[in-house]
Design a binder for these strands. Structure first.
Lengths: 143, 143
DNA sequence: ACAGGATTGCTATGAAGCATAACAAACGTG
DNA sequence: CACGTTTGTTATGCTTCATAGCAATCCTGT
């Protein structure tokens, strides 16, 4: 079948991402987490006393949508919420959360290694900087 | 804020893809299409008399989910269904569909060019082959 | 020719991600 | 201390994607 789509970087980006997310999801389901959960746990570990709102900003997830995500992690005993002041809560990993995150890291590192291994060596080192330029780069109006 | 995520290719892939899809969506909404619609129209144009099931296989969209997609394109007068045999239908662009697709192509080409322009020149040519290797590459069990 | 398995198109349904609007409570600043 | 902002939250809807099941039709091997 003729497929003009494969020469479009945008289409390749979408297919690669959705295939990757699906496969990562399969692996993470074995420790009862979703990829979004893991990104939240990682950011909490790296930033003690962060709030849900700040997490949402970093992950590009709306405040409203953080509620069920944080709620589920708390219900699972992986994180804890402590009041910072009368309004905000700080999120911190519990001992259980730290253990679970270590398991997640093992899966993630294995997964990322396999991901890179699929890319021909000649292109491999260009992938991360190219991808980061796509979403972290200067706003389109500057170009 | 410390962000260990940005050094993970998988995370960068996800963020880049979702930012890209959102932006493309904004542009396509002006001609009343979604990115999935466009990919369907493109494949129909390139493959006369293709069926919805075959389209689904090419685009990695389940048969069941093709129904509303094809239905909406047909309702909008962009494609036509003709019975091939008692079971299958061939999809073809209408004149209106061809016109709309031409508009879509103009948007897509502009968009893809801007996408690539955001990637530093040193990495630019590596992006498409690297991405295609990620999802078209050999099955993981072979490695 | 025909039986069995595969394919097609479809309905129904649920999970997940993401968006908006609205709200009360609390914060921070001029 | 009043006003604009921020936080956490509820409610809601849309889109994407997955599964299960079904009837009709097809293709293939015998």
């Amino acid at each position: 079948m003729k497929d003009p789509l494969v020469s479009l970087p945008g289409y390749a980006l979408r297919r690669a991402a959705s295939a990757m997310i699906a496969e990562l999801g399969e692996r993470l389901v074995e420790i009862g987490l979703r990829h979004t959960d893991v990104s939240i746990l990682i950011l909490i570990e790296a930033n003690a006393r962060i709030t849900a709102s700040a997490l949402g900003r970093a992950l590009d997830i709306k405040r409203a949508n953080m509620v069920p995500l944080v709620g589920r992690l708390e219900a699972g005993g992986l994180i804890e919420r402590r009041p910072i002041d009368g309004k905000s809560h700080s999120l911190e990993l519990t001992a259980r959360g730290r253990t679970r995150l270590a398991e997640a890291w093992a899966i993630i590192e294995q997964f990322e290694a396999e991901l890179l291994a699929r890319v021909p060596a000649a292109h491999r080192d260009h992938l991360l900087p190219a991808l980061n330029a796509l979403w972290q780069g200067p706003p389109p109006t500057l170009g």
